[in-house]
Simulated assay, not measured.
Amino acid sequence: MLLIYNEKTNPYFNLAMEEYFLKNTTEDLFLLWRNESAIIVGKNQNTLSEINYEYVKEHDIKVVRRQSGGGAVFHDLGNICFTFIACNNNHFSDFKRFTMPIVDALKGLGVNAEFSGRNDLLIDGQKFSGNAQYNYKDRVMHHGTLLFSSEINDVSAALKVKPIKFEGKSVKSVKSRVTNISEHLKEPMTVLEFKDYLMDFIAKTDKDSKMYTMTDEDIANIEKLVEEKYSTWEWNYGNSPKFALSNELKYPGGNVEFNLNVEKGIIKDIKFFGDFFGKEDVSFIEEKLTGVKHSEEGIKEALKDVNINDYFLNATVDVLVDGIMGVK
Rank of each mutant, 00 (worst) to 15 (best):
L22H: 04
K23E: 02
N24F: 01
T25G: 07
T26S: 11
D28L: 06
D28E: 12
D28P: 05
L29P: 02
L29Y: 12
L29N: 02
F30V: 01
L31E: 00
L31P: 00
L31D: 00
L32K: 13
R34A: 09
N35E: 04
E36L: 04
S37T: 09
A38Q: 05
I40T: 02
I40M: 05
I40P: 00
I40S: 02
V41E: 00
V41C: 03
G42Q: 07
K43Q: 03
K43M: 02
N44R: 13
N44H: 14
Q45L: 00
Q45R: 11
Q45S: 03
N46H: 02
T47F: 01
L48C: 05
S49L: 02
E50L: 13
E50W: 07
Y53R: 10
E54R: 15
E54H: 12
V56D: 01
V56S: 04
E58G: 04
E58M: 15
V63Q: 08
V64H: 12
R65N: 06
S68F: 08
S68R: 14
G69S: 07
G69F: 10
G69M: 12
G71L: 09
G71D: 00
G71Y: 11
G71H: 06
G71I: 12
A72I: 05
F74P: 09
F74M: 09
H75G: 12
D76Y: 11
D76K: 14
N79S: 11
N79Q: 13
I80E: 00
I80L: 15
I80M: 11
C81K: 13
C81L: 15
F84K: 14
A86Y: 12
C87I: 12
N88H: 10
N88T: 10
N89Y: 06
N90L: 14
N90C: 11
N90T: 06
H91F: 12
H91T: 11
F92R: 11
S93W: 08
S93Y: 12
D94N: 14
D94Y: 04
D94H: 11
K96G: 13
K96Q: 14
R97P: 00
R97S: 03
F98R: 03
F98Q: 00
